[in-house]
Computed example of a mutant assay.
Amino acid sequence: MGKVKKQNKTKATQSKNTQSLPFNTNRGQHILKNPGIVHAIIEKSALKETDIVMEVGPGTGNLSAKILEHAKKLIAFEIDSRMIAELKKRFIGTPAQGKLQVRAGDVMKDEDWPIFDVCVSNLPYQISSPFVFRLLLHRPLPRYAVLMFQQEFADRLVAKPGSKLYCRLSVNVQLLAKVEHLMRVKRTEFRPPPKVDSTVVRIEPKNPPPPINYQEWDGILRVVFLRKNKTLSAIFKQSTILEMLEKNYKIFCSIKNKPLDPSFDIKNLVDQVLEQNDFGNKRARTMEIPDFLSLLLAFNKADIHFC
Rank of each mutant, 00 (worst) to 15 (best):
T94K: 15
M83E: 07
K109N: 15
S121A: 15
N122L: 05
V107L: 12
F116Y: 13
R103H: 09
D106Y: 00
D110N: 11
L137G: 12
K89I: 02
K109E: 15
D110T: 04
Q126Y: 15
G105H: 09
L136E: 01
S121H: 10
D80Y: 03
V120T: 02
Y125V: 02
S129N: 08
V107T: 05
R103D: 00
R90M: 04
L137T: 14
D112Q: 13
C119T: 11
F133I: 10
L137E: 14
Q126H: 15
D117Q: 06
I84N: 11
A104I: 06
V118H: 08
L123D: 03
L123W: 07
R90V: 01
G105K: 13
A96N: 12
L87R: 03
T94N: 10
K99A: 03
L135G: 05
Q101M: 14
Q126I: 03
S129Q: 05
L137R: 13
I115T: 14
P130Q: 08
D106P: 09
P95G: 09
R82W: 00
D110Y: 10
V118P: 05
L135M: 14
C119E: 01
G93P: 11
K89Y: 07
L135V: 02
V107W: 05
W113Q: 08
V107P: 06
N122S: 09
P124Q: 10
S129H: 07
Y125T: 00
G105I: 02
P124W: 04
E111H: 11
G93C: 07
W113V: 04
F131D: 00
Q126V: 04
A96H: 14
L135P: 12
K109Y: 02
Q97I: 03
V102W: 04
G105M: 06
P95E: 10
F133C: 05
I92F: 14
F91C: 10
A85H: 14
G105N: 08
P124N: 11
S128W: 00
F131E: 06
K99P: 06
P124T: 07
L136Q: 05
P124D: 07
S128I: 03
D106Q: 09
D110W: 08
F116V: 01
F131N: 06
G105A: 04
T94Y: 09
I92N: 14
A104V: 09
P114Q: 04
P114D: 03
S81V: 12
D117P: 00
Q97A: 15
V132E: 01
G98N: 13
E111T: 10
I115L: 13
S128Q: 06
I92E: 15
F116S: 00
L137W: 12
Q126M: 09
F131Q: 08
R103I: 15
G98M: 10
G93D: 09
I127P: 03
Y125I: 07
W113Y: 08
I84Q: 13
D80E: 10
F91L: 11
I84T: 11
G98F: 12
R103K: 12
V102K: 11
G98C: 09
A96I: 06
D117F: 03
L123A: 08
K99T: 06
S129W: 00
